[in-house]
Write a protein that binds this DNA or RNA. Sequence first.
DNA 1: AATGAATGAGGCTTCATTCAT
DNA 2: AATGAATGAAGCCTCATTCAT
Lengths: 205, 205, 205, 205
Amino acid sequence: MPAAKKKTTTANASPERRRELLDIAAEVFAAQGYNATTVRRIADEAGMLAGSLYYHFDSKESMLDEILSTFLTELWDGYDAVLAAGLGPRETIEALVTESFREIDRHRAAVAIYQKESKHLADQPRFGYLTDSRQKFEKAWLGTLERGVADGVFRADLDIRLTYRFVRDTVWVAASWYRPGGQHSPEEIARQYLSMVLDGIAVRE
Amino acid sequence: MPAAKKKTTTANASPERRRELLDIAAEVFAAQGYNATTVRRIADEAGMLAGSLYYHFDSKESMLDEILSTFLTELWDGYDAVLAAGLGPRETIEALVTESFREIDRHRAAVAIYQKESKHLADQPRFGYLTDSRQKFEKAWLGTLERGVADGVFRADLDIRLTYRFVRDTVWVAASWYRPGGQHSPEEIARQYLSMVLDGIAVRE
Amino acid sequence: MPAAKKKTTTANASPERRRELLDIAAEVFAAQGYNATTVRRIADEAGMLAGSLYYHFDSKESMLDEILSTFLTELWDGYDAVLAAGLGPRETIEALVTESFREIDRHRAAVAIYQKESKHLADQPRFGYLTDSRQKFEKAWLGTLERGVADGVFRADLDIRLTYRFVRDTVWVAASWYRPGGQHSPEEIARQYLSMVLDGIAVRE
Amino acid sequence: MPAAKKKTTTANASPERRRELLDIAAEVFAAQGYNATTVRRIADEAGMLAGSLYYHFDSKESMLDEILSTFLTELWDGYDAVLAAGLGPRETIEALVTESFREIDRHRAAVAIYQKESKHLADQPRFGYLTDSRQKFEKAWLGTLERGVADGVFRADLDIRLTYRFVRDTVWVAASWYRPGGQHSPEEIARQYLSMVLDGIAVRE
DNA sequence: AATGAATGAGGCTTCATTCAT
DNA sequence: AATGAATGAAGCCTCATTCAT
């Protein structure tokens, strides 16, 4: 057998260990909140002593930073692809929502942290990218909604900013209850969410 | 002996002062998160020293407790009235949503705190009422939705729990951006939210 | 009895307590070095817990800062008075040396700390005044020596910068062994030092 | 079997490498102070990782130990030669001072460390030789001065211990500013220092 | 001879809380 | 009703040191 490429002697090179530790940290941050999480708790969960984390990371804050920035980088990779695809407004919204649920599926903890902490973190220079991202985000969604209203595919009788917040929150809050591997796939959840958002939950007569 | 004046632990202070201080505390908790908020910060905001707060309250936690329980008590006063009114499912949902936005208007800070902190607080016995409330809440909303599906006023093709979470989150997340005294009254916001939730944002053909 | 003004109820108002604590800290810093001194050690010496120091001071570093800046302020009060007096070079040197020994007498610990730590502290912006002071210091002493050489009261055959360092070090190193209340008064020590520096220790023929 | 090769704890390393590393360590200790110097800083400077230093040395303290003891051994080689030469008091002082500046030239960093750290190190048994050395040192210098006073070559009107400290400090503090390879050779500096110490800086009339 | 990862002790600092006044 | 000072527990982080490779 020509040997399936598998891990050689040093399977735990630095970047992978970092990833492991960050995943653990993200889980704890998401569950307890960043401030309420002690560095010791993360270390316990990782089976090491608190001080040992500092071999891998500069500080608790830098762990948070890396978790959030990694997530946002990936998110924007997906979003940018969607936005560059030249879809119509409704299809763009559908694609963004679907992409969002996929991100929640992949980075549930990071998304939950983002939801809880981003507002007060944004004040710190170090986390300035949170504000940048939020603005880009708003431009993408709001722009698409406006385009949809202009094209006559979205209702014109609603406050557009209210609608934006409605759609945005509706999607992202899902991170607070979503559990990967549950009975619905991200795509299925996206489909149902889109159905509710676009057509409402009331029966049409 | 005619009733020795009961000496509650604290609460020597006038109810008005307590309210003032709790409002200040709630504002700070909402802005920075409970854990990230120092007692000293609250005291600063109130123009006193940290230690002085302990004349009015037992602990930081008891402030949080009082903020949340006061809010929930008022919330349930409203909800119970709606639920006792014997309305149809759609009208009940409309009334609950409207009532919810009124609560957000009145207790924005408390609602924001509730959103951020209730999940991990619920573990502590002292905050057991959060779990109780959540269950009562779920029963009321989920029951109404089910009744609506049975009555044929809400769509039957959606996962009902997903729908519940959708409607619930949709409403409460608003506390994160709502500013009392803004351009929309709570009732107006409720109306628009209901319109989106019930009928969707897409134009019907 | 018209009562000699003595301490009333609150004899330990903030500034005095700070002074007490700083004196203690200075003593320990001088004995063990700033870095080797733990905050706990200072607190022990003051009969309190380590954390309690932070009611009075922002940080260990700010204690050091206050010790050094207080000392330098007083030192320059004295030096400026001397320099403004319009004395001849020899008399100026005599007055500066005498003043220096008086400062050593009053602030022995601060002087010892200054000797040991100022060089590497000067890099930090916070301690920039150390560099300023050193420059002012050099200008005052070197200028006086140069004037003395020009006037023919000091020898012209010596490297003037070497002479400056010689005189300067000669005086300040005394802080490393000086004990206030010893057998020589600061003035007496100054007299003997000046005699050595000016006339040498060899017998003249 | 002629002498099994003794296996000292460390010292497996080549003597040259040890020397290099000690020189680096001494430089850093001198610049930042022993306590403020991290092992990692030394390793950085040497282009290796902190842990790797432990192949060469037992501990940070043993580096310090070796730096100081090496210096003192060499110093006493020189001093003992001078003291054994049977010179007169003035010539002895001249020779000791000259020898001292040569040591400063050769071991500037070690001398600077000695100045800063020896006082509080002397308490530890491991560094007992610092106290021994200091006593031997005092006996040599003080004895020579006393002999000089008795012989009428040094002034009798000065406090002899004050004179001792004056001469001693005057010489050694030079390590704090001396830079090898500067414009003055050690011998030239010694000559000027001796001239100041012996004859004073004032012009004689 | 050196690396990479971890340990464990201890350091500085924060903060909720107490209490005499 | 509030202040001023202190407590004590806990938190984040640093660092000398170890050890398998």
